[in-house]
Design a protein around this nucleic acid. Structure first.
Lengths: 195, 195
DNA sequence: GTCTATAGTGAGATAGAC
DNA sequence: GTCTATCTCACTATAGAC
């Protein structure tokens, strides 16, 4: 029975954590692999032992974050008599996650415009994350609870609204616990889709 | 009376045009000043004669584009009896501009996440561009035509919706002339703000 | 797995002739 | 204003010892 007590976890995780912080503060391009390694208290050779390239590190970080987020916002049985209420719970969970993981959220925004990761790669990860969202929307349309607009457009719109609202609260943390703002953000989202 | 007939305009404009195309295709960081100069058929020394630095070029390009856009979406006398119709005209003009100037639109998206330009600089330019939008919203609230949510949140939301929709149409040009999609995009936007 | 040292590349920017 | 030539530097990635 081997019990590993690594205060600084393994160096790989240290590198991922450090990279996240630096990427968000300086941008991905502006953050050198050397600075990631140095800040993490690790040699550059070690970084390239764990990740074949800088972009591989970026991609792994991105996948990890998206996966964590998806777990947090897990869907459940849909109920046509309470769809708005259910949507509200998911929305508030998503905003809460973004607030509690502001660095992760901002990194995702950076990755969206980071061209070395192909659009296909990102679209695939996005589809995984938002698969359940599509289910909810189709369900709502079938029960005539939300508008019958093209589903791809509605998905994009919903994603955009989430990014906008979460960014707003991250940039104005003092308003994030203000019920008035929280309610307004959800209503701006939900009203879009009403018939 | 001096009439200057410069086929390739002046070299400065050539550099700006070339930079825009390269930035959108490869990203801002991934585009070297050397490649901009070469593609524009100009020497690197000439580039740095017109722009003190790469970021100065980026900034000037950004300012020019935002100014052009603002001119296109010029506001007019607001009419409380026709606010939705007026909003629709502005929205469709904005989407049309984005479609006719897809490179410009995508460049603005890149700049949003380009950290060498300070957030303040960008916020200032944004405020100029969207000043009239705030007027419209306040007007709508005063006449109880749109919801009474906090104005900063509504502005961010409106901006996000515009970015989302214009990106969607740029990525799916065949749908941009489909009235069903066009109507849906505006409704998704406008419904947000209804009371 | 981790380190030190460094190879190799390409970037932004400048000098100075024309 | 425009050019050629070049400086200087920082970056990604590798080699090879431990």
């Amino acid at each position: 029975m081997s019990v590993t007590i690594n205060q600084p976890k393994n160096k790989k995780q240290q590198l991922l954590d450090t990279a996240l912080a630096l990427f968000v503060n300086q941008g991905i391009y502006a953050t050198s692999t050397a600075s990631i390694a140095k800040t993490a208290g690790v040699a550059t050779g070690t970084l390239f032992h764990h990740f074949p390239s800088k972009d591989a590190l970026v991609l792994e970080l991105y996948k990890n974050i998206k996966q964590e987020f998806a777990l947090q916002i897990a869907p459940f049985e849909l109920d046509a008599t309470q769809l708005e209420q259910q949507a509200k719970v998911i929305w508030q969970q998503a905003i809460d996650w973004a607030l509690a993981n502001a660095e992760q959220q901002q990194f995702c925004l950076l990755v969206m415009q980071y061209q070395p990761l192909s659009a296909n790669t990102k679209a695939q990860i996005f589809a995984d994350e938002f698969g359940f969202l599509k289910e909810i929307m189709l369900f709502g349309q079938q029960h005539q609870l939300i508008a019958n607009y093209p589903i791809e457009l509605m998905l994009e719109s919903a994603h955009g609204q989430f990014l906008t609202s979460s960014q707003f609260f991250i940039n104005n943390t003092e308003l994030a616990q203000d019920a008035k703002y929280r309610e307004a953000a959800f209503n701006l989202f939900w009203q879009s889709f009403t018939r």
